[in-house]
Amino acid sequence: MVDLGNYNELEIAREVDFGVYLTSEDGDILLPRKYVPAGARIGDKVRVFVYRDSEDRVIATTAEPKATVREFACLRVKDSTPIGAFLDWGLEKDLLVPLHHQKERMVTGRTYCVYIYLDETTDRIVATTKLGKYLQNENIELTENQQVSLLVTGFTDIGIKVIIDQLYAGLLYKNEVFQHVQVGDKLQGYVKAIRPDNKIDVTLRRTASAKDEITEAADKILDVLKKAKGYLPISDKSSPDEIYGMLSMSKKTFKKAIGSLYKAGIIYIAEDYIQLNTPEDKF
């Protein structure tokens, strides 16, 4: 049975002027001439995406949509009409979000995160902005520090909402993100904590023990100091942005790291700079 809304490996059955027909258990499916791979012949198998065209016919294409059925994606609204919003998902026919599947009325030109699914009643591919029912919140098969993929879906007062591995809802805390992030961004992250209520906190950096993190930060500061001839124009009085811009670490971590270096007699901390106590040529 053909998997509508997904990729299928189908065999070329016959050729016509306007393309080729691919054989499937549900009958022959047209692959228009402009999508037929160069050199393809009858009997060859081709990887195609199968969906319905503007006339509601099942059709194949070698063009790749931005997402497939059973996936979450953030897509731009091309047009908003009384029957629903039409999203650009990379194919000739736009993806419909019916009006009753919109949490709020969708606006042309804006980007929204949706879940794409096959409507069992109409056998049509549609999308919804009501994501909750499609996210797992039980039997979470993740562990702390596990590397995961993140899709940015929105913002709250305290953090950035993400979808983890196309399965779970998660949260990135704003005070731990030092880069510009917008809806639709795909990031690599790590599981920070799975709370008793099954809510998941994630981070963009692998969590280390406090001791390991400070040691790593101190080593980095020393390395940068050596390359800068033993002097950096930042100190524990500098702004978080200045520190992150120079060292890509939080002010909290920076202060602890230079504190450990100062106690060890390695650096001198002034009001607006830090400096190596030991001459550069001894390192």
Rank of each mutant, 00 (worst) to 15 (best):
V2N: 04
G5Y: 06
G5K: 06
E9Y: 14
I12T: 07
A13E: 09
R14Y: 13
V16T: 12
G19D: 10
Y21A: 02
T23M: 12
G27M: 03
I29G: 08
L31I: 04
P32Y: 02
R33L: 14
R33H: 09
K34S: 11
K34A: 08
A38K: 14
A40M: 01
I42H: 06
I42W: 12
I42K: 10
V46H: 08
F49V: 08
V50M: 02
Y51R: 03
R52L: 10
D53S: 02
S54H: 02
S54T: 11
T61V: 09
A63H: 13
T68C: 13
V69C: 02
V69S: 05
R70E: 14
R70Y: 11
F72I: 01
F72H: 09
F72C: 02
L75F: 08
R76M: 07
D79K: 12
L87M: 05
G90D: 04
L91T: 10
E92R: 01
D94N: 12
L95A: 11
L99Q: 06
H101L: 01
K103H: 04
K103N: 11
M106H: 03
M106F: 00
G109R: 01
G109Y: 02
R110T: 04
V114L: 00
V114P: 00
L118W: 11
T122C: 02
T122V: 02
V126S: 04
V126M: 08
A127F: 01
K130Y: 10
L131S: 03
L131V: 02
Y134K: 03
Q136M: 13
Q136W: 08
N139D: 15
N139M: 11
I140H: 05
E141K: 15
N145L: 07
N145S: 15
N145I: 03
S149T: 14
L151W: 04
G154D: 05
G154K: 10
T156N: 03
I158W: 10
I163K: 00
D165G: 05
Q166P: 06
Q166C: 06
Q166D: 15
Y168N: 00
G170Y: 06
Y173Q: 11
F178W: 12
Q179F: 13
Q182E: 15
V191L: 03
I194F: 13
I194D: 07
K199F: 08
D201S: 11
D201A: 05
V202I: 11
T203C: 13
T203N: 14
R205C: 05
A208I: 03
S209Q: 07
A210G: 00
A210P: 00
K211T: 15
K211A: 14
D212I: 09
A217P: 00
D219H: 04
K220E: 07
L225Y: 03
K226E: 14
K227M: 04
A228G: 06
A228M: 13
G230Q: 07
L232P: 04
S239D: 03
E242K: 12
L247R: 07
S248W: 13
M249L: 07
K252W: 11
T253L: 15
T253K: 12
A257S: 10
L261K: 11
L261Q: 07
Y262K: 14
Y262T: 05
K263L: 11
G265E: 04
I266G: 05
A270Y: 09
A270K: 04
E271G: 03
Q275I: 07
L276V: 09
L276K: 04
N277K: 15
F283G: 09
